[in-house]
């Protein structure tokens, strides 16, 4: 579904990614873990087109998308739930969800998608006429996820979806993501919460200093000595 080959990205003079390779297959949950500043968010932003790569190739469903702008890549049925949610604070919850279905393909399935989002997050239905800026942190995350689902994506990328949430809410969010995977979404997840993330994932990649240093099945990674010491505190 998603393939990244030899990806190199810089911010000005500073190189952040030094040739990253990975794939996400259909129906998988794949997690990218790594310390702050390793290049995880950069990877997701480059895949969706918010950042431009220096080198390397990005394939979405087998199609090379390097030269497409963000709004064209989204049409390939890939969605990003960005770090910090990035909801539209002065629009209502309903309007935020409407914008998720901005593209014509998504508009055709507006009603059923809205229904399933409200079923997944009844709280959003209760607050549909409220300005999104008045929501709590957990509700904002629900809205960001709901908004992404409104676009009827096949691949959903999550950037630190549990950031700043209380532990019980973080568990809820990761359970929701696992649930989404079970209903047919392919998922690429970036998480600080390594243990919980690996528990729900099929495979994982470890990025450090802009380089891929480890990859494997999720349970394999959990038993890895380096992962244990650096990320699981064991």
């Amino acid at each position: 579904m998603l393939e990244v080959k030899n990806l190199e990205v810089s911010y000005g003079q500073l190189k952040v990614l030094w040739g990253i390779n990975f794939t996400v297959k259909k129906d998988e949950i794949v997690t990218i873990i790594g310390p702050n500043g390793a290049g995880k968010t950069t990877t997701l932003k480059t895949i969706i087109g918010l950042l431009k790569e220096d080198k390397g190739e990005i394939y979405i469903k087998g199609e090379k998308v390097n030269n497409l702008p963000v709004h064209e890549r989204v049409k390939k049925k890939i969605a990003l739930v960005p770090e910090g949610c990035e909801i539209f604070p002065y629009l209502t919850v309903q309007e935020n969800l409407d914008l998720g279905a901005y593209l014509s393909d998504a508009r055709k399935r507006y009603k059923e998608n809205l229904e399933s989002v409200f079923k997944l997050f009844p709280r959003l239905k209760e607050r549909r006429n409220q300005l999104a800026g008045t929501l709590s942190g957990g509700e904002r995350q629900m809205l960001a996820i709901g908004r992404a689902l409104m676009s009827a994506p096949e691949i959903v990328m999550f950037d630190e979806p549990t950031l700043g949430l209380a532990p019980n809410l973080a568990v809820e969010v990761l359970k929701t993501i696992k649930g989404l995977n079970e209903t047919g979404y392919t998922i690429l997840l970036v998480e600080q919460n390594v243990k919980m993330a690996l528990k729900i994932s099929h495979r994982g990649y470890v990025i450090e200093n802009g380089r891929l240093i480890l990859s494997g099945e999720a349970d394999e990674l959990m038993r890895n000595k380096h992962v244990k010491e650096a990320y699981l505190g064991l």
């Binding site: 087109g49 918010l50 702008p69 709004h71 989204v74 960005p82 990035e86 539209f88 002065y90 901005y102």
Partner: peptide
Amino acid sequence: TYFGKAIRATMQNPYAAALMGINV
């Protein structure tokens, strides 16, 4: 209208607007 909502969304957050498929 969708067009009007897209204008308001772009005004508030152009990055997120692009993620919605809006041609900013």
